[in-house]
Amino acid sequence: MKRLITLTVNDQEYQLEVPAYRLLVDVLREDLELTGTKEGCGIGVCGACTVLLDGKLVSSCLTLAAKADGSRITTIEGLGKNGALHPLQRSFIEHGGFQCGFCTPGQIITAKALLDINHNPTEEEVKEWMSGNLCRCTGYYKILESILAVARA
């Protein structure tokens, strides 16, 4: 059974007809070709597919697209304005907050959600908040550094 839904993704409105079982990650990646959102585990553990749904973090691999009907979604492609990088994006580059880069969109989206509600988090708060985003390359030290640099700026 297909459903007609409306999603506002990165300030752009889309009307889509999707099967009831279709996942948000697939709609974003395949239907809207926003492939910056990644799928790593399929069970909402690794955080690579994290997007903001009405300002809140969700695992798009666990979220039904139909359930997101009417909501506003921010993906990595929605960060930065007028071709300029978001401060977090700049900081991840400057501090080496990524290696392979596969988890990076999810890391940056998750960090943005933290800084949106807490402008000056402590190191412990960042660690706790970010612990739902797995990274196998960096050991997290430079991700932490990248986020704290923006928070302290």
Binding site: L34, T35, G36, T37, T75, I76, E77, L79, G80, L85, Q89, R90, F92, I93, E94, G96, F98, G101, T104, P105, I108
Partner: peptide, 13 residues
């Protein structure tokens, strides 16, 4: 900074 930094932080890679 990394050669491919821009594309990795923007999701373009």
């Amino acid at each position: 900074p990394r050669f491919e930094g821009n594309e990795k932080v923007t999701g373009e890679a």
